[in-house]
Design a protein around this nucleic acid. Sequence first.
DNA 1: CCACTGACGCGTA
DNA 2: ATACGCGCCAGTG
Length: 104
Amino acid sequence: MERFDEVYEVVKLIPRGKVSSYGAIARYLGTSPRIVGWAMNSVKGEDGVPAHRVVNRNGVLTGKMHFTPPQKMQEDLEKEGLQITDDQILNFTEHFWDPSAELL
DNA sequence: CCACTGACGCGTA
DNA sequence: ATACGCGCCAGTG
């Protein structure tokens, strides 16, 4: 669970209007991407953890189906000024936030 | 205790 | 460029 807590910390640090990827966070924490996804799944009631700002390396909302409702993820991202088409974030690289690079 | 699964990522064919 | 397979760590059955 310590891993999960670290994941939460990083996710919380994601600036509004920016997004990150499982791989980037995992690499920053020195863990595997799967753990990051599992951590998000374990978030459930954890507050202050913008899981909707975490997507896969392709900028696709792979985990949107785990939200309630599933479209909540896209709505929140759009509310933050992000453009999404077919579960895909437009200009993903421009909105991408890498903890290893930005948060060094 | 062993086996299967999962919000992913990368290498190889 | 697309498709298939393996690795990774933790949790649950």
